[in-house]
Nucleic acid binder design. Structure first.
Lengths: 245, 245
DNA sequence: CGTTATTGTGTCCATAGGACGCAATTAGTG
DNA sequence: CACTAATTGCGTCCTATGGACACAATAACG
């Protein structure tokens, strides 16, 4: 297939694999490679040429071995993806900010930075999967930033989802800055130019945005909006609870 | 590859194809199938079995023909995706709401509904691509809902991105309600149970969320937060501009 | 030192997308 | 009313990918 999905069984298998601890070995030859080494190689390829170029073949070539040798370390492609993701995520940034607002902003920025370093992360993260240790750690950090925030558990989870969704959208956009992607933008521009009467608001919004120059604060803008929204919810609740008591 | 990406050239080609108007034909046999019919078949397969199951082969089988026959109507797989997407999106909902707030809420809900009907849309929309006519129409509708909103063009675009990102995240989550996906959730639960001390906030947030029962208003919650944020930005600007004049 | 699990890797297969070629078909044209 | 030429349906063939299997070489352990 051209891309993207994996069957359910593989997804579960990948999760189990990710959380399995290294079993001490006994007999047999010493492993010539390591899981980390393989992950690194795969990540390097993804960084250079995109996730599509990551095939067992290429990873093997990069390590100077053959495709099938890898299967001794990684059960399959799905597991490779899982390992790549959890490796590339790295440890979460720990904000020592006391207040939830700057803490969440720092968290979102941290996620954004990581994702920008390895844009293919977006694809993997948004694919249905069970989070690995590192990914859960990020989650944990995000929730930690919200301890002081008077929201219900489900709401906090939703909030993180909202922020992550926003960050990932932006990374997708910014990753599309390569030469070939510019052509897509150019395409859209010429389409809009031709049918401006069909899409008046769109045409003018883009025109206006171009005039503004490249606003580089889309991340901040979005996060601020969300956090403002949270703030007003909190304020509203505080008001209604005090008037009730 | 397992899934997901398409090379840049294909993406551009797909866009051109999408916006090309049907050329009047002259000689030759009458086409036995139609582009719409093919799109419908592909969409049906995607709805039933997921995007991965959509192969030229299967689409052809469904139409009672052979794979290669389809290539007379569709240049390639990338173009098929593009057509599927733009067809499944359909016409945007038109909210007659005057105020931007209910209008945007209606818009977001509309996007959510469409995406829930064909969950694979999420994958295609978030892939780098040039929007087709229908997709642009949705965009246009979203911008139209914001006419009264005193924001700059770039900000409006960012806002739509933010909302779409949120909606798509939710659809991804909700689409994961099938039996196999439940296993992923179960997996996560057992992981959290085992290492609750490593991820305390996460564990408790999930526990709390479970107690609340399935909150079905994640969509509303997120959108409200964003719109609240927009409202406070607008209020803030109104205040500072009036104090400056 | 033999037993046995484990590693590296070659061979073989199915499925995907897609290039090419060619016969059958039919809108215009003289 | 043929004749020309474009266009359709579709069989054949090729390449890449993930992956199952088989098997010999290797090394820990009793």
């Amino acid at each position: 297939m051209t891309e993207g999905e994996v069957d359910a069984a593989s997804r579960v298998a990948a999760a189990v694999f990710l959380w399995a601890q290294p079993s001490g070995r006994r007999p047999g030859p010493k492993p010539k490679y390591t899981l980390d080494g393989i992950a690194e190689a795969a990540i390097a390829i993804a960084d250079e040429s995109g996730l599509d170029e990551v095939t067992m073949q290429r990873v093997a070539e990069r390590l100077g071995t053959t495709k099938m040798a890898l299967y001794r370390y990684v059960p399959g492609r799905a597991e490779l993806d899982a390992v790549m993701l959890d490796t590339a995520l790295g440890a979460p940034v720990v904000a020592d900010e006391a207040h939830w607002r700057p803490a969440l902003m720092a968290w979102a920025t941290g996620v954004h930075d990581r994702a920008m370093t390895h844009p293919w992360i977006v694809e993997l993260v948004q694919r249905p999967h069970t989070p690995g240790p590192r990914e859960l750690a990020w989650f944990e950090a995000g929730l930690g930033a919200m301890v002081e925030l008077p929201l219900r558990g489900g709401e906090k989870l939703d909030l993180l989802t909202l922020l992550v969704g926003h960050v990932m959208s932006l990374v997708r956009q910014r990753d599309s800055s390569g030469a070939p992607e510019q052509q897509l933008a150019a395409n859209l521009a010429s389409i809009l130019a031709t049918r401006a009467e069909l899409y008046p608001w769109t045409a003018s919004a883009f025109a206006e945005a171009d005039d503004d120059g490249a606003r580089d604060d889309a991340l901040r803008f979005g996060v601020e909006r969300v956090l403002d929204g949270v703030a007003s919810l909190v304020a509203e609740r505080a008001a209604s609870s005090s008037s009730h008591s």
